[in-house]
Simulated scan of single mutants.
Amino acid sequence: MRQYHQQLHEWVSLPKDRLDLNQHPLQQSLDLGGSFSVICMWDGAVCADSHSTGGLILKDERDFVVFVLGLFFEVMDDPLVVETIALREAIQWCRDIGLAQVQFEGDIEILIDKINAKDARGSRVGAILEEILHTLDIHRGFNV
């Protein structure tokens, strides 16, 4: 129970958005500009009321959660589109805060296969995939 309460307290105290980063900066061990590597787990989901949600969790080298960010998308009912946009947002967020080495992990194999094959053709998310591939080309330390 003590461990549960400690983890709950740590989760509640994490920064939840960019404004909250000013009050609760990322842990000092997180080197935002160096060769430090973090894991960014992303996910997206279509909800029953025709909106969609997603988010990302950023973990450090000790596997500790150091940041969470929730996403909300209006009127989207295609799970592939939602997952792709959630990944794009995660990549852009990590780029914007200056991370140099990020391993992105998600649970949608078809999207990950397309990215690893560098193939945006023949997909209803082709334009978003091209944007993701372009960003990954520029930021060589980002891997999906």
Score class of each variant (00 low, 15 high):
residue 130 E to W: 13
residue 140 R to Q: 06
residue 101 Q to G: 04
residue 93 W to M: 07
residue 60 D to S: 10
residue 29 S to T: 15
residue 98 G to A: 06
residue 11 W to V: 07
residue 48 A to K: 06
residue 7 Q to R: 10
residue 79 P to Q: 04
residue 4 Y to E: 14
residue 130 E to T: 09
residue 42 W to A: 03
residue 45 A to S: 15
residue 135 T to M: 13
residue 88 R to W: 14
residue 83 E to M: 00
residue 120 A to R: 07
residue 111 L to Y: 01
residue 37 S to P: 00
residue 110 I to R: 06
residue 41 M to K: 06
residue 91 I to S: 04
residue 98 G to R: 07
residue 135 T to Q: 13
residue 142 F to G: 02
residue 111 L to R: 02
residue 8 L to D: 10
residue 53 T to A: 11
residue 97 I to R: 09
residue 121 R to E: 11
residue 56 L to A: 08
residue 113 D to L: 14
residue 69 L to K: 14
residue 51 H to L: 05
residue 118 K to H: 13
residue 103 Q to S: 13
residue 36 F to P: 00
residue 26 L to W: 12
residue 113 D to E: 15
residue 21 L to K: 15
residue 75 V to K: 07
residue 37 S to M: 07
residue 12 V to S: 09
residue 45 A to V: 03
residue 44 G to M: 04
residue 98 G to D: 02
residue 59 K to H: 14
residue 106 G to H: 04
residue 141 G to C: 13
residue 12 V to E: 14
residue 14 L to G: 08
residue 54 G to V: 07
residue 138 I to R: 12
residue 56 L to D: 09
residue 118 K to A: 13
residue 39 I to D: 08
residue 137 D to F: 08
residue 138 I to P: 00
residue 42 W to Q: 01
residue 14 L to T: 09
residue 26 L to M: 14
residue 70 G to H: 08
residue 42 W to N: 00
residue 79 P to M: 03
residue 127 A to P: 01
residue 2 R to F: 08
residue 27 Q to R: 14
residue 30 L to A: 10
residue 45 A to L: 01
residue 74 E to R: 07
residue 13 S to N: 11
residue 19 L to D: 15
residue 97 I to Q: 05
residue 39 I to T: 09
residue 84 T to Y: 02
residue 116 N to I: 05
residue 101 Q to D: 02
residue 10 E to V: 12
residue 48 A to F: 06
residue 91 I to T: 03
residue 39 I to R: 10
residue 138 I to S: 06
residue 55 G to A: 09
residue 56 L to P: 04
residue 8 L to I: 09
residue 73 F to H: 14
residue 45 A to W: 01
residue 107 D to S: 08
residue 103 Q to T: 11
residue 2 R to Q: 12
residue 90 A to S: 15
residue 83 E to S: 01
residue 110 I to Y: 05
residue 51 H to M: 06
residue 16 K to E: 08
residue 46 V to H: 01
residue 96 D to I: 01
residue 16 K to I: 03
residue 104 F to A: 02
residue 87 L to V: 03
residue 107 D to N: 11
residue 132 I to S: 04
residue 118 K to L: 12
residue 83 E to I: 00
residue 99 L to P: 00
residue 109 E to W: 01
